[in-house]
Design a protein around this nucleic acid. Sequence first.
DNA 1: ATGTACCGTTGGCTCCACCAACAACAGTGG
DNA 2: CCACTGTTGTTGGTGGAGCCAACGGTACAT
Lengths: 146, 146
Amino acid sequence: MVHRLDGRATWLVGRAHLRSHGLLQEAFAAAGARPYHYRLLAALEESGPLSQAELGRAAGLDRGDVTRSLDVLGGSGLILREPDPADRKRNRVSITRAGRAELYRLDAVLTEVQERFLAPLSAGERAVFLGLVARLARDPEGAREA
Amino acid sequence: MVHRLDGRATWLVGRAHLRSHGLLQEAFAAAGARPYHYRLLAALEESGPLSQAELGRAAGLDRGDVTRSLDVLGGSGLILREPDPADRKRNRVSITRAGRAELYRLDAVLTEVQERFLAPLSAGERAVFLGLVARLARDPEGAREA
DNA sequence: ATGTACCGTTGGCTCCACCAACAACAGTGG
DNA sequence: CCACTGTTGTTGGTGGAGCCAACGGTACAT
């Protein structure tokens, strides 16, 4: 392989992501869902009914992608999209009973994927890794390096 | 944000990758190059002349993507592609003097990106992180290497 | 009433990874 | 010699994920 990349953090993170994403994709596809859908259902369940723009900000999705994903979720009866009577330019999106059930089902899928992804590490190592990668994941906005 | 994802390794790795990839993309674009090109030049410099299929396996690229990337690299004079006299179905690809210079230039860019990406971590933490993420990056099944 | 800002929708884009088909070619066993 | 198998390079796609621009509709402060 390419020795020059062996110790590069960006390379290793990319490869780890490839494996992680592959596992996730496979598991979600087998469950008939997509990561976007999970994120939206989770945001809805945790925050209660939201407008689509709020939902996008909560789940980290583009407004347009929210629209398209909700089309699918609504078609499956997992969410309810109704015009907001207080502001007619908004939609009020809420999770349905079926949506909650789906979310819980996917929670289990996600948990199982974590286990497979983290299999190479011991419990202690996992905790260390999670702490470090969380700091690398946060966008250091305003963080000025002295 | 979605509280449910905060501690998920797959989520954090995905977010870290997003930041990493963004930094890399930005820096390489400013340098007029692409990650694929760097990988190919690096593989060529480390292994010497290769066929395109070998090159793809060394750099982890699809054969088709190798073909298209070499079109660009060849057009810039960074690699030389000539028919292999010993096997007429192969191309013998080698890195040129200009290609080496480009590779070294991109090495510096890459190094600078590492620094920005890893900025949130101390030197000791970086070493720990690299060790752990390297183990997560390796595909635990199959993947037999020579 | 007018301007500004937001909303949802649609249509597009880039990047990365991957797959399928094809003709050309090499090496094999018969 | 012939047929078969496998590889190579090329072309033409697929798909997910993230993102941006433009549009018409709506709310609200001025």
